[in-house]
Design a protein around this nucleic acid. Structure first.
Lengths: 405, 405
DNA sequence: CTGGTTAGTTCATTGAAACAACTTATTGGT
DNA sequence: ACCAATAAGTTGTTTCAATGAACTAACCAG
């Protein structure tokens, strides 16, 4: 069986079962967002009847998705019974595919990483890498005792057709048009759902679902800086795909008119001024050391030098921040999100670049708008693409349907 | 009663009534998108049971929202009874507020303008303009015989808080922080819903709902070019508001680094290179005629000269198109929409600018992506902001709820 | 230990979708 | 002309889940 079952249900109508599923999801998400919370509070928030909440909650308790805490004490009247998500029971597999580092993890449904592993590799064929990943994943699972497994989420540094689980193009891995869903299915149970998504989009989902910058209905852009640049756009908590799965492929926005030529054929592309290679190159050029030592220079070296007060390193980093800010500014003007969240190594030196990014994004003009969109480092406690991969599967636990009119 | 009732219902749970409302909307929208269509076809598309469709359709027929055509003939078996939206019965009021021209119309629920009027004015206070608009609207309605009225939609050339029906800032009208909903409510019945929205966003909605570029779930950007620039972004047919109601306020994206200074305090803003004033100014400068005749020059003059083969006019228009394309390119890279639809006077000379816009948007590089997003003139048969205003009310007829998880 | 208060459960009621059996309308073959 | 075959649409019964009212449970203050 190589066909992809178990896609997110697309709802075209409401009947009693679908209605129940939706209400179940509403209650489950209410607990997720407001835990600990009592049945009575859920009833008030959702406007579902107390009795309805009781019935659905008891089935969620039966499924081991929720736990009931004995007591919160306090107030007048009978004490509420607090409900929370159950930990240590429902796990998902997470794989973040990239070169030179592919990560594998088993993650609890609250986003806690229970076990993790890494595979360092140059570009290799998926037929080599995928079995390796699944092997590591199974090894990790076997260390964790009994649990329910909710499938595998995969984030890929490249353009992904998530509806068909295909990788269209992944530059670092040198993959083109790979049916990743099928290749993974060969190695795992038919029952475990597989979700594949672009790394920046997955990271955005992780920030929405697992981050601590929670708001009621998050409108945010996750900007993932690495060897390239990618963005994931969440509107009301949903990730925008784009007509050709290319929403957020912002690396080739023009930020410097008449700038450096880009392999894409244009010039002045954002990627040439904002990816992680850039400050390293700028710093190396200024240092004018030997070509060999230039090539060996890493981003950590630049960060270290900057922390040590090296003027050239600081200059490279500030300039980097300014160029990042220009592109963020354009995105803010188009989408007016609540926040732009940035992920990547840059978060290590956020204090050094924050001001440059903000100033460039907003401009210095007196009429410049109040800074209504916060530009912040990610709140995720581990690699965003890895947690993003986990979030892809975790989302299915909480909301395995979507309504389309 | 000045409180705003009758907002779009925000659904937090499903019960039998809500489910029925949703299914009713699903059926009504299925007819809207696929008319003429039979009950049996609706049943197949929505996967609602035949009997359920029959019941709901009969209530829609009772409400005069649908009509039944006798017969389509053909095929084997009993012939289907075709269902279509009823015309000439359900009207909405549309007001597009702008200086120097405010438009008022009564519009059928399929988007046909039944009667229209215009008010030419400089910037005036809302307390002067609003009663005038309502007066004109009532006059138009009285010419139209009996009908059901579904409320007033208002589009404003400016930043609008549509959830509170407030105009935050409208440059041409010189309005700031106006509670437009309340001011309109003073002059009309409590039962007629009022919807206020930014003109570009409303235009986007009109293109989605009333345009002929229909697709299943439209992801499009409507770019409205006038005295300023605004965009309305539709994702799955829903208009994105933005955190501060400023999504699509793209006039101050930087498209020319180190370009002309803008009143906003930055430089090289898109508005300075792409609004309708710009080609007029460029042409006037080249012509080096007297300052008086320069000031009198209009956009139509430039278009006329270009059509007549005037080199300077053509140059101004091509340059205009190129600058428009640059900004569109950035939007495409961020959002990857199905199409970018352009509205404004520019559509009159689309054949002259189409290529400039596309070339600038996509770049000329050999590696440039295939042109996956179509850049097209609007398909709307009348002023987009006016039909946009109508669409705001028409939307409520078809879908007066939204689900929020 | 009693009355007041809030949390949570039980059970009869209600609304709507599904299902199956039916009627209606039309084509095509004999 | 008549009789399958087929498809559209309707009717009555069944099923499922949310609701509301009445109930029990737990807790507090005096």
């Amino acid at each position: 069986m190589h066909t992809e079952k178990l896609k997110q249900k697309r709802i075209t109508r409401i009947n009693s079962k679908v209605g129940r599923d939706i209400n179940r999801s509403i209650i489950l998400n209410t607990v997720r967002k407001h835990q600990p919370i009592s049945r009575a509070e859920i009833s008030k928030m959702t406007r579902l009847n107390k009795s309805t909440v009781s019935i659905i909650v008891s089935s969620l308790l039966n499924e081991d998705l929720l736990v009931e805490a004995p007591d919160r004490g306090g107030g007048i009247g009978r004490n509420p019974l607090d409900l929370s998500l159950k930990h240590g029971k429902h796990f998902v597999g997470a794989i973040s595919l990239d070169a030179p580092c592919t990560r594998v993890a088993v993650v609890d449904m609250d986003g806690t990483i229970k076990a993790r592993d890494e595979i360092f590799t140059k570009a290799v064929s998926p037929d080599t890498l995928i079995p390796q990943c699944i092997g590591r994943l199974n090894a990790l699972r076997s260390t964790l005792g009994p649990h329910r497994f909710h499938g595998i989420g995969v984030s890929v540094a490249g353009i992904v057709d998530s509806t068909h689980s295909r990788v269209i193009h992944a530059a670092n891995l040198q993959w083109n048009d790979v049916d990743l869903g099928a290749k993974i299915r060969e190695h795992i149970s038919d029952n475990d759902p597989i979700t594949v998504e672009n790394d920046a989009k997955a990271s955005a989902l992780a920030e929405v679902l697992l981050g601590t910058r929670n708001t009621a209905s998050p409108n945010l852009i996750f900007l993932l800086l690495g060897a390239g640049i990618g963005a994931g756009i969440a509107i009301h908590g949903k990730i925008i795909a784009g007509n050709t799965h290319a929403a957020g492929e912002v690396g080739h926005m023009t930020v410097v008119e008449g700038g450096e030529p880009c392999p894409c054929g244009n010039a002045g592309c954002w990627e040439l001024y904002a990816s992680e290679r850039v400050p390293v190159r700028w710093y190396a050029e200024k240092k004018q050391s030997s070509p060999a030592s230039q090539a060996a220079l890493t981003l950590s070296d630049v960060f270290g030098a900057a922390r040590g007060g090296d003027v050239h390193a600081l200059h490279a980093i500030h300039l980097w921040g300014q160029h990042i800010g220009v592109g963020i500014g354009d995105m803010i003007r188009i989408l007016d999100p609540e926040m732009v969240v940035v992920g990547g190594a840059i978060t290590q030196i956020w204090d050094l670049v924050s001001e440059d990014i903000n100033d460039a994004a907003w401009g210095r003009g007196t009429f410049a708008r109040k800074r209504t969109t916060a530009i912040l480092p990610t709140s995720l406690p581990d690699s965003p693409p890895l947690l993003g991969a986990a979030a892809l599967s975790i989302r299915r636990i909480f909301e395995d349907f979507s309504i389309s009119l």
